[in-house]
Structure formats: C-alpha cells, structure tokens
Design a protein around this nucleic acid. Structure first.
Lengths: 181, 181
DNA sequence: GTCTATAAAGAGATAGAC
DNA sequence: GTCTATCTCTTTATAGAC
C-alpha cells in the first residue's frame, strides 16, 4: 500500500483492514505510524544487505558486478513493496530515523561504488569516468525498476537483471555497431 | 514541495504560504488540490513533449538517440520538481485525469521505443533484445535521475546526459575490456 | 484577488473493556 | 491481542466581507 498509494496517503485504518483487524489494534504492534515505515525501511535495508553480503567474496571483478546487479534487481523485484517504500517513502521519516535509513542506503551504494572501482582497477570497466559517476549511472539503471516492474508481467527478474548487466558491462545495446566499427 | 515531501504530505496551507498568501486564497486559482497536481503533471508532460518534439526530425539514428537522451535528462534536471511530481505523485490522481497523465507518459515512452527501434533497424543498436526491453532499460537509466540529482552538485545535466548516452550507445563503462577482447 | 471565520470530514492515537 | 468509543488535531474546502 505504501508503494501503490504512498505512505502519507495510506491511513492506519486501511493498513489494519488489510490484515483483518480494526484500526486501533495496530497500535498494539506499533507505537506510531512512523514506526511502521521505519520498520519497513529497516527490513528493506536488511534484506538488501543480506542479498549482497557475499558479493565481495567473489574475486573475479566482472562476476562480482554481475552478482551484485542480479542480487539487487532480484531483491527489488521479489520484495518490491518493501524496497519501493524504502527508496521513495523514506523522505517521510525525520531526525535520527531518517539518518539511520540514509546511512543504510549509503552503505549499499558504497558497495556498488567499490565493486565498480574494483572492476576499473582490474581493467574490466573503463576509467574515462569516475567510479562515483558510474555508480550513479548503475544505480539509475537498477533502481527505477522498483517503479514499474510487474512480477505478473512477461519479463522475469533474472532476465531483466541479465539485460541490465550486459548493457552496463558489455555495452550490449550497442553491440552491433561496435562489431562493425 | 511535491517532490521533496510528496503530494499527500503537502498541505494546501503550506503551498499557499510558499507563494505568500493564506490557505483559502489558493482556491481562487484552483478548484481542488487534485487540480493543482493535475496541472503540474500536464505541464510536466507538455515540457517533455516540447523538449523532445524535434528529435524525430533527426535522420541519423545515433544522433536521434543522443538528442533524445540529452533532451530528457536536461528537461528532468531543469524542472525536476515538476517532473518528479509527474513521475512519482501521478498515482494520487484517479479516473479521467489519471488516464490522461498515463496517456501522456506512454506517449513519451513510445517515442523512446520508436527511436530505439529506428536505431536497431539501422544497425546502430543490437537486436539481441527487443526494442521494448531496451526502452525499459533506457528509461530506467534516465528517470531515476529525478530522485537524486542536485543542480547545485558537481555534475551538470549535459555532462550526465553524455555519460548515460555513452553507456547506452557505446558501452562506455565496458570500453577497456572490450578493447582488450 | 486576498482575507477571516468556519464548516465538515478524516487523520493519528488513547482509554479501557473483554 | 482485538475490540468499541472517543479524543484531539489537522485537513480540504466554503462563505462572505473587503
């Protein structure tokens, strides 16, 4: 519901209805509505961290990036409600809690940037652009998926992850022209 | 304010304050709060259409895509509040109005897909993936910019547009490894 | 075109019974 | 752990003076 309609537009009563209880009963499980969003964001970050925990153990720089892209896209698609809430509705938090979520998100983005730098140092990725810029571009490529991806649609998550990885790592979109050149 | 805090979380009084009038005075200019969002979405789509109106006059398929990517990114960054509201807060609309905005957005996405197909037919882009899939990937690459881009930051819009275009069209990220291969 | 005053509805949250 | 009843505050929006 946070993904479809937004956090502010979703009432506690609607949330309660969705789990088959009355509005006030929610407050036995959460102190405030903000608590609920904070919990969702934390769980999103926990799963994202868990899904990508192993990638830095992969020594091959290219395989590491492929694994990272696959883990990120697969996680985002599997729990898209959760991750959309974190990525988009995060802004509704404030103070300590907002900082905690931003810290977790930055942590994940740092993993992406490190993996890119690792690939650049190994010559797998070009160094015309900084790791920072390339990581912003890669996160663009990955994150917007959360807005539109439909698990019931024709594309599967691993398929789409492969497409994004081959565009970023191999320049797949441009393959034909590069062959001719 | 719609971009920073979301449509539902922004009150009409805050909007009025921001333009130096009292809450109820807003209603001289707009019938409802939804009207305001609808107007914002329409203006976003109008500017996006205007910015990309000329690209299909460009006969060179590669130059057409470069122009489209540049126009899209530049527009999104220049009026990021407007376009973020359209892309993210759209969901707050309903009925006829939601349909109208979706129609406009789909129209723009169709332009992206046509430009990709045109490039594929000319051999500038590979045909391993469908134009549909490639356009989803390209829109990913372009649209997430609206979430994080800071005009006061170190990167300029045309710079970032060039980066994204060279990743998508040339496989720039992978350039070194492809040279070696 | 903006104001003050206010209506009407809905929001998050609490109290206390069961 | 969930309920009903309800409090309190905020919200969108209207009425009508200036």
């Amino acid at each position: 519901m946070f993904r479809e309609r937004g956090f502010a537009a979703t009432t506690t009563r609607e949330l309660a209805d969705a789990v088959g209880i009355r509005g006030p009963s929610l407050y036995h499980h959460f102190e405030t509505k903000d608590d609920l969003l904070f919990g969702v964001c934390q769980e999103s970050l926990r799963r994202l961290a868990e899904a990508t925990r192993a990638v830095e153990a992969e020594p091959d720089p290219r395989a590491r990036l492929v694994a990272l892209i696959d883990a990120h896209v697969t996680a985002i698609v599997r729990d898209r409600d959760l991750h959309a809430a974190m990525l988009i509705e995060m802004r509704a938090l404030s103070g300590e809690r907002l900082r905690a979520v931003i810290w977790g998100r930055d942590n994940h983005e740092a993993l992406v940037q490190r993996s890119i730098q690792y690939a650049q140092e190994a010559g797998v990725l070009g160094s015309e652009h900084s790791a920072r810029e390339l990581s912003l571009a890669l996160l663009n490529l990955l994150n917007w998926t959360v807005i539109w991806f439909d698990p019931a649609g024709p594309i599967t998550a691993p398929q789409f992850a492969r497409l994004l990885a081959s565009i970023f790592l191999d320049g797949t979109a441009a393959r034909v022209s590069r062959r001719i050149a």
